[in-house]
Design a binder for these strands. Structure first.
Lengths: 242, 242
DNA sequence: AACTCATGTGAAAGGCTTTTACATGAGTTG
DNA sequence: CAACTCATGTAAAAGCCTTTCACATGAGTT
């Protein structure tokens, strides 16, 4: 795929030519298939057609390979979130929700990265590079929260952006961890993880006083509603009312 | 402690007398110390003072031991949540929040159980017994959500209890996974995980239209309050307004 | 053409998992 | 009490994984 080397071993000489990358790709596939815990250094070597000792020329040990993958994962994650956020276009709230969806999409489409990043038991905080990458990714959520906080309706206390960001992160991560993995679908759900998260975020934002009615430019349904039962309750975030 | 057998090996005869339990305890300690992935069948045997083959008389393999621990974990988890919920006393909202706190407390105080239950990569859905235990635990959250949903302010669409339960679960799990582990504190936080989760749940409930003012022991009678905008509490869930 | 050094190999040490045949002794039975 | 049985442990061995070390190869440089 990447180079001219594909065949098991006969086709290539003594040197692989692209082993580091081949190992990363192999590991990615293995982790996606058998989980971060089940992945094996030896397997990756076998898959790349080299001896079990060869990987040690490129990674100090199995953990370093895992870290490299987590590193790349955070970078791709950051890129994806950046794209989803799109600097808050077309409007802050819907861009914010897109970020949540992107989080889930990443967990589903890149289970290997997600595993390495969040479920491998790697000591994230012991590796400065990794830590930095992780914080850059979180920074996107934080920046989005910052923009959203600035839009808080007047008259209400302004929520701390950092707190909002942490809340959104925990919601996204919770849904992704519990329900979001494509292949090994962990638990049965009455709705898609995406819908579940979207409703959760909408309710949360409404709790902060943000207008969250989905239809174009509707009023602030929850917050500014005059007292008295509304004649027709607006559609809640969970669809049509009972 | 449990039996008369404690000393390494000289003190006991050929038969251990309580090996199954000893293995479970040893595994619990090892998992707490080195994570579910790092735990070793052989280590547990060593710690119990038996040969590496002995555990196989009590568990089909390493995974079955892990499952047993997860099983017990879910049972203790259910008991803890049940106690925290306390059938909704003294009022539904505060009991609901206690459940969230209990979730975090469990993750922090029982890292080994939590690991086995949620981070070991066990195929929960492939083991009916385990699945059932897991669902009983979730059932507590669901029951609480049911009661809460019944109190939804009139005039607003009633939120599906199942959805609320899933939301609360994902928030709790998200916070616990990302920030909640005692020993290996993963990331720096500007506030405690407990406070973070409490604020998150309060904002969420407010988004559903529930009164969430903290101080004046809001009894459930509050739901008889004439409808109107959510009371825009004088103090937000995140403390004193700016 | 000679040299060098990154990159790969083979072998070996040490662990873990799991199976199998065999040992032990606790509880039961006559 | 003696004999028996069966659950529970042991030792040994096969197979796999990780990691290290001395050595081989050959790509790039001089």
């Amino acid at each position: 795929m990447s180079w001219r080397k594909e065949r098991g071993r006969a086709e290539r000489g003594y040197h692989h030519g692209n082993l580091k990358e081949a190992l990363l790709q192999a590991a990615l596939g293995l982790i996606a298939e058998k989980g971060a815990a089940g992945f094996t250094f030896a397997d990756a070597a076998r898959m790349a057609g080299v001896s079990p000792a060869a990987p040690y020329r490129h990674f100090r040990d199995r953990d370093e390979l895992l870290s490299s993958i987590a590193q790349r994962g955070f970078e791709q994650f950051e890129a994806l979130l950046t794209q989803a956020w799109d600097d808050g276009r077309p409007d802050t709230v819907s861009a914010f929700e897109r970020v949540g969806k992107a989080y889930l999409a990443f967990a589903r489409n890149e289970p290997a990265f997600y595993s390495a990043m969040f479920e491998s038991g790697l000591p994230v905080d012991s590796n400065p590079t990794l830590m930095a990458a992780s914080e850059r990714a979180f920074g996107i959520i934080r920046a989005a929260a910052e923009r959203l906080a600035a839009l808080a309706p007047p008259g209400t206390p302004r929520p701390p952006a950092m707190m909002m960001a942490l809340h959104i992160w925990s919601m996204s991560h919770g849904v992704a961890s519990l329900f979001g993995r494509g292949d090994a679908a962990r638990r049965k759900l009455p709705m898609s993880p995406e819908d579940l998260l979207e409703a959760e975020v909408l309710i949360y934002l409404r709790g902060l006083g943000f207008p969250t009615d989905r239809r174009p430019a509707a009023k602030d349904a929850a917050n500014a509603k005059p007292s008295g039962p509304p004649p027709v309750p607006p559609a809640g975030p969970w669809g049509t009312p009972k």
